[in-house]
Write a protein that binds this DNA or RNA. Structure first.
Lengths: 126, 126
DNA sequence: TACAGTACTTTTTATAGCAAGGTACTAAAT
DNA sequence: ATTTAGTACCTTGCTATAAAAAGTACTGTA
């Protein structure tokens, strides 16, 4: 029973959404901040996942960035949402809400069934 | 702005969970029924996705099946949860609930950190 | 015997996240 | 002046998974 893998699979699809949300909330932030927030929300993400994703979102026009120097280390890339990014995030919110509803539908016991159940002839093998 | 792809990504991770839920609710059902239920819940799935997934879940010991003849076509493989499958499904439920909470955390403007940490003095020094 | 409908199967392809290793800059210690 | 530690960003190769598409097989009907 490897629950870890399935957990990871569930997490995968929503990373983009969460990352855009975090950037949207913070107005402007850099990768390590995002990693930190994700960890606090119990969404494990590693650098090798985040950096390519940020680059892709920037290339797709959802994010822009500027370099800002730090007092205590190398300069940081501060990302923020573009106009397109805001619209995209809005769509993702809808998608997420729909997904939660869909899962509820399949998860709930009470599910209006089609009446056409065939007569079950017990024919076992295997 | 290709929202479709991101929607698909979000869907991916929860398919296993939804399919196990459906089988758990119905006690016993076959692939086409599952496809039907998924579609009704607005979770698009195609045969090429479902059949290999069912086979994998069976090989992992979460599902068992029996052939049952149909009056109107070829015999059907009726799947049901094994004992291990029930436990696994229970774990997935927890995982899903945690995920929903995690997404809420990253999505909400107010990023309240878990209350278990008492003194929440804003001391994010860098 | 041919055809339509249902059900299950397999192969190939594309994508995304992850692990691991690498580069570069700053500040403090030696 | 050089080394070390810490921070931040980047890249390559691997693996798992869903989707597309084509295929097999069984049943009843025309």
């Amino acid at each position: 029973m490897n629950i870890e893998n399935t957990q990871a699979q569930m997490r995968k699809g929503i990373l983009e959404f969460c990352i855009l949300s975090i950037i949207g909330n913070d107005e402007e932030c850099y990768a390590s901040e995002i990693l930190d927030r994700m960890k606090r929300a119990k969404l494990i993400v590693v650098e090798g996942t985040l950096y390519p994703l940020l680059t892709r979102l920037k290339n797709d026009g959802y994010l822009s960035y500027q370099w800002i120097e730090s007092k205590s280390g190398p300069p940081r890339k501060y990302y923020k949402l573009t106009g397109l990014g805001e619209k995209f995030l809005e769509e993702l919110r809808k998608t997420w809400d729909e997904l939660v509803r869909a899962v509820d539908l399949t998860t709930l016991k009470i599910q209006s069934t089609p009446s056409s159940k065939t007569s079950q002839i017990e024919s076992n093998n295997e």
